[in-house]
């Protein structure tokens, strides 16, 4: 293998990892910005999305990429229910809210464990090992598609936040809840929408990961820490920061996979984040 192929492989793998990391962090950091809640159950929503996709494919016989649509719809429903019956009551409990969300994490992952068992599962994509040719380079088609879908989702969400009225309201509440309320914005409604977007994007990420990597009810922890790493590096609540940080961490992890055995590659992100927090406790691109 010559160097240009290797570099291209690493670059594409980096893009692939980054796209998933950005997608899962997007919801996390939005929820933090708007609701001031650190959602420790975020990765469990991702795993829930993975299982929803698994059910849609194996039980209903859907094509895995078509199944993403009902999965997102289902996750939006889950988001609405968890907001109405849970999240809205945790808005004014202060720092102790982390405990509520640990409990939510515990409930979701153990409901999944009871239903699906503890074995690692993956969603059959039907694509096998087929490759896509990008000029002289080859890359697994599945990973390529997953990266495209998640990047497209992130782009769509960013555009939505930038241009639409609701998106502007979301950003307003994130900047200052009080001022936004004075301007007549219904902050509870905005928080509900943010929460639902966050949960559905996590679920989409989980379904996409499920196509590529095997997952189990407790597999969320790794993604949780990666998402936090990205969120902190980007500065909690900053969407632009999230995108930059996602690329930094994804690319670094891809680069380090050259030197490190695969089972310890997540450590890269963790060490990275500890280093960043020691030097700059508020993250690199923190909101002013």
């Amino acid at each position: 293998m010559d160097y240009s192929t290797l570099a291209m492989q690493l670059f594409l793998t980096g893009i692939f990892l980054s796209s998933l990391y950005i997608l899962v962090t997007f919801g996390l950091t939005m929820i933090f910005g708007v609701m001031e809640i650190v959602n420790f159950a975020h990765a469990s929503f991702a795993i829930l999305g993975g299982y929803a996709c698994l059910l849609a494919v194996t039980s209903l016989g859907m094509d895995p990429f078509v199944a993403l649509v009902p999965v997102v719809a289902f996750m939006a429903l889950v988001g609405w229910l968890t907001f109405e019956f849970f999240a809205r009551y945790t808005l004014d409990v202060g720092d102790a809210h982390v405990v509520h969300y640990y409990a939510l994490l515990l409930i979701i992952s153990n409901v999944l464990a009871l239903i699906f068992g503890l074995d690692y599962k993956f969603v059959p994509s039907g694509l096998g090992y087929s490759q896509i040719e990008l000029g002289p380079f080859k890359y697994p088609l599945l990973k390529f598609l997953v990266a495209i879908i998640s990047l497209a989702t992130v782009a769509g969400l960013s555009l939505y936040l930038k241009k639409s009225v609701i998106g502007k309201k979301i950003r307003a509440v994130s900047q200052s809840k009080e001022s936004a309320e004075i301007m007549g914005i219904d902050s509870l409604k905005i928080r509900r929408i943010t929460w639902i977007i966050g949960v559905s994007s996590a679920g989409l990420m989980g379904a996409l990961v499920g196509l590529v990597n095997p997952f189990s009810p407790y597999a969320g922890t790794t993604y949780l820490i990666v998402a936090f790493s990205v969120a902190i590096l980007g500065g909690m609540g900053s969407l632009f920061g999230t995108i930059v940080a996602g690329f930094i961490i994804g690319m670094t992890e891809s680069l380090f996979s050259l030197f490190l055995p695969s089972q310890i590659s997540p450590v890269v992100a963790f060490v990275f984040i500890i280093g960043v927090l020691m030097v700059k406790p508020e993250g690199l691109f923190s909101r002013a």
């Binding site: 650190v38 720092d95 982390v98 922890t221 790794t222 949780l224 820490i225 936090f228 790493s229 902190i232 909690m236 055995p261 089972q263 310890i264 997540p266 450590v267 963790f270 060490v271 984040i273 500890i274 927090l277 020691m278 406790p281």
Partner: peptide, 25 residues
Amino acid sequence: FSARGPYFTIITLAIAEILRIVFLW
């Protein structure tokens, strides 16, 4: 303790995960 609040929580979580992965490895 260089970090506070949720950031502290996340560092501690990351340390436990690093140890788990290193001991497994």
